[in-house]
Write a protein that binds this DNA or RNA. Sequence first.
DNA 1: TTATTTATAGACCAAAAGGTCTATAAGTGG
DNA 2: CCACTTATAGACCTTTTGGTCTATAAATAA
Lengths: 237, 237
Amino acid sequence: MRRAIEYKKKARVLLIDDNYEHLTGIKEIISMEGEFDVVGTSTSANVGISLAKKTRPDIILMDINMPEKDGLQAIQEIESLNLGTRIICLSGYDDADLIFRAMKLGAKGYVLKTMASGQLIYAIEEVASGKIYLPPALCSRFIEYFQTSFKEESASSSDEENLLSYLTQREEEVLDLLTQGITYKGVASKLFISETTVKTHVNNIFQKLQVNDRTQAVLYAINNGFTNKKKALMSKI
Amino acid sequence: MRRAIEYKKKARVLLIDDNYEHLTGIKEIISMEGEFDVVGTSTSANVGISLAKKTRPDIILMDINMPEKDGLQAIQEIESLNLGTRIICLSGYDDADLIFRAMKLGAKGYVLKTMASGQLIYAIEEVASGKIYLPPALCSRFIEYFQTSFKEESASSSDEENLLSYLTQREEEVLDLLTQGITYKGVASKLFISETTVKTHVNNIFQKLQVNDRTQAVLYAINNGFTNKKKALMSKI
DNA sequence: TTATTTATAGACCAAAAGGTCTATAAGTGG
DNA sequence: CCACTTATAGACCTTTTGGTCTATAAATAA
């Protein structure tokens, strides 16, 4: 588990925690372990971000419960800088929502402050070596949260009373063109039919979808899983 | 169906694996452990699903690399039945995409076939007790996949050349109402301004977003992160 | 102060959208 | 064969949209 190879580069670590006691405590723990190099400490998120830009550390240990600026925001800012820095969250809470948001923003680890110091060291080692570290209990929380989010979403978008299923193929083709913001004239020429026919189809679509105009039809289509890039990304089976 | 008259209820397990050798092997491992009750086995996904309906097991161990019917589909079907059964995937591959899709469909665990039998027992125990079990290495894979999916999505939707940022507050309010499929008249009465004013705003919006009509404006708004339920769900910071 | 932006609004007009009714040809299922 | 659905399309009409031009008051920036 622990690498004893001395010639290996020490991982450069930056600490950000508004609680000074805690900050120095962690610094000591990490420094004692000869493996890491603490290149900076900060009790403020903003100063921490500046330090990150200057020192470009390998790892940031970031407290995410800070007043002034939210730790999550700090993660977002640092991630958007693309410094190649890997962020580990330090938190007092194992709240699923917090964990989810932190990981979504690109955190590479999440450890609780109540954790034994040996585990913290292990987490840093893991993350420094390119892995992601989430303690099993938190991983479980994270995935539960992830699953319920998706269950809600698919439930709301299926509802099994999807009016889109009543459309004929031709109507679907027309709707598809409508969702691209094309006029009747345009649809007519694309489908090689007359403008009147398009209007007839559109009227039928409106009735089937129970809407009054194209904007509402397009909205219904998008919200109910009618070909949509974003959905495809996250929902391939 | 025999009832085990024991102090602690044994977890009832159903096994689905198209490889018969493997199936019997697992059955033996599980049965030896006095803790579980194998209530059925199947080498076919479809039969397995029927068995699940009949026996309503606590746990299903499901091979997800089966010919005939995909294990993922089977998971989806069983989950949609809401039997209260918790599914653990058995797979020969630690492919991130597979893991992600399985968990997204509601699997409660994912273990590799190469795993030591003791670990399999542990996984079943964990899942049976209501937790989610993903071995650390797979959890890491899962989260990496999750993060890259979201990075792509936010990258494509920000691009930092977001025309929406040029809109004034008032124009945003108007656009917001447009994205609900409301007419000029409706917008006017909601904002307590004249219809003409609405039209002026809308024209400005079109120019700023470089579109020609409301449908295209609405599409632009949705595809570029303008208040949208689905996004909100998955992207609160 | 002057220029610019923002929100407001009127007038006029053309194009597009939407509603309703009718009608025909092809295909499907009893 | 008859009823039904689907795709096609014309006629007529109203409402909504969108385009352009002008204009005023308030706030803001140069």
